[in-house]
Design a protein around this nucleic acid. Structure first.
Lengths: 345, 345
DNA sequence: ATTTTTTGTGCAATCGATTGCATTTTTAAA
DNA sequence: TTTAAAAATGCAATCGATTGCACAAAAAAT
């Protein structure tokens, strides 16, 4: 069956012997149409199964009621939750979401962002890929008059709306907790340091050590260990040191922490008694492992709602320019078995 | 900073003293433009930071190069993988994806589908919500000349392109495996029977029992136990029966299987020796639980690629009408600890 | 009864890109 | 050198909805 031609406002107009203008006004519930015609139009529209052509409408109005989202991966806890949070709010306002994944590739991120600019989205919400440090594509978004909201992983020197976690604080609390549990040689698995969030987590780690007069041991700090595999590799290296750590903070993700746990288990090292493990993100699986993994919850769903609200707030006062500002959400330490050698065990 | 006006083909045309037609042709790499002008246009376009207005382009061409996807939840393994699979293929062809979640609500599904029709997407890919059995909104998609591809959970009486798992076969194999492991009283946690996939899984279960001359015991078949909580409730009920089952097939999902495992563990029932557990979907967490959960992998990423290819295949021969057909992907039983009382343990 | 205001419609331009047809320019063939 | 063919460009309509302006009809005010 061939695609039939769709009903347009002209079809409705013709049938009712009025102009398309009136039909348009009726459909938009304008006050400049007679109640009678309005009813008639709506009825006929329903009869003819009319669907407004958003392309035409948006072209004319210069808006798209669409928000583009670019995240590294949609199936990571924080991102799918943020998306769900955004959706809840935007859905009720008849906005569409276009979701893109960068797969941590800078090139794909750039292409996605450009595609969204092409689409004339009203706003782009992004958490940048680990790869890359050139953010001219984001500047480009702003230059095109499209609102830009960054979250979690942000390009810090770009002045935009930002919704963040207080990574420093979370990290500080996590390490403090470990120290209180009696861990003394705490290793750090770092994420790519070009990303602010990972730098902050490192700062929190360093500060916690300092506050408790613990030395910073460079061989216990491992760069770029942010997947499960890299976390596992790093752990093998660490546990084979002459003086191995008694705890590992997988600051990059719970996936990395999972790698740590698996290696430790396979090496016969007891968690949490011989080795404490702290992850990051509160992925659902962290409460399923044995022992369950202590981690940090980012309130990602709430972040999503915050982002959406921020957008609508900004849209309302169209005249005033956007004041770049940062909203910081305080994450929460979720204490589980993998660090609880005093209380738990 | 106010949104500056964007560069259009007219701006380029004016600057080069040619017409917009030529600019358009140059940008579309038409053979009807001089190589020189083509180069010049491309250069100027880059200089002026030109971005084609897809709204205008699509309006004119009557296509949108956009595929809409509606799934119950994007953070469920099968769905996020299918989406990723679709994206890989469509991305290289410059297609956009609009992703909607129905959250298992029929009403939201209908609204999402209508929004996608409004958007003039070229194709809608859907896995229907558990709720609801009226599929006129899908008929509506077809009536609007939009391609419709259903996957996994489908409205069976609607004649469309379908990409499915062979649920019956998978279920049959899973139960056969359990029987071979010596389980004799195997309970079934059913999903909503208005969905074909759950009916098929039940059929597979029944057939396996029959093949091995095992009786069908009605009190071991529990309706609608398809979340973690419902799975847990069902398990409590089952294990408190005078003659409790020695195995449970959570045919609905691994989440349900997880509920089973947690209840069993808390009741001190040993898995797999006292109770076998089989899940469905191969969620990532199933290999992390202890014991790890035997489950069925649906090759969801591959399904996604299949869906995308199916679409492009159909788009190519525009003339011939769409022949409704079904592609069935054979799932794979992943044997883990939760059912391995012979070999493993 | 006349003027003013309100309300409802229509007209026509607009958003930006595309494309069939006509026209001009260039190139090749006779 | 003239003619035919090919290549490049321009013109103008089109996709469908929206909206400022003009105008007519109806209602309200004088």
């Amino acid at each position: 069956m061939k695609a039939k031609k769709r009903t347009t406002i002209y079809d409705i107009a013709e049938k009712l012997n009025i102009t398309a203008s009136s039909v348009s006004r009726a459909l938009n519930n304008s006050s400049h149409v007679n109640e009678e015609t309005k009813k008639l139009v709506l009825k006929t529209a329903a009869e003819l199964n009319y669907k407004r052509n958003i392309l035409a409408s948006n072209l004319r109005k210069g808006e798209s009621k669409t928000i583009g989202i670019v995240v590294p991966r949609i199936n990571q806890n924080i991102f799918s939750n943020v998306i769900a949070g955004i959706e809840e709010t935007t859905y009720s306002k008849d906005y569409n979401l276009i979701i893109c994944q960068s797969n941590e590739s800078h090139e794909k991120e750039v292409k996605s962002v450009n595609a969204l600019i092409n689409q004339h989205v009203d706003c782009i919400v992004i958490s940048v890929a680990a790869e890359g440090s050139d953010y001219s594509h984001l500047q480009n978004v702003i230059d095109h008059g499209i609102k830009l909201i960054q979250f979690d992983r942000v390009a810090d020197d770009l002045e935009t709306l930002k919704v963040l976690n207080d990574n420093h604080q979370a990290s500080l609390e996590g390490i403090t907790h470990m120290i209180e549990q009696g861990y003394k040689r705490i290793a750090l698995l770092e994420g790519p340091q070009n990303l602010d969030i990972f730098r902050q987590r490192k700062q929190g780690y360093l500060e916690a050590l300092k506050l408790h007069n613990l030395p910073v041991i460079n061989e216990l700090i491992i760069e770029n260990a942010w997947t499960k595999e890299l976390g596992a590799d790093a752990t093998r290296k660490l546990l084979n040191l002459p003086e191995p750590p008694d705890a590992i903070f997988a600051s990059t993700s719970d996936f990395s922490a999972l790698g740590v746990l698996e290696v430790a288990t396979s090496m016969g090292i007891k968690v949490p008694s011989d080795l404490g493990i702290l992850g990051y993100s509160n992925e659902p699986f962290t409460e399923l492992t044995s022992p369950s993994i202590t981690t940090i919850d980012q309130f990602s769903h709430y972040m999503g709602k915050t982002i959406a609200n921020l957008y609508f707030q900004e849209s309302e006062n169209k005249e005033s320019p956007i004041v770049p500002r940062t909203i910081s959400v305080k994450p929460k330490l979720i204490i589980r078995a993998s660090t609880s050698r005093r209380s738990y065990q």
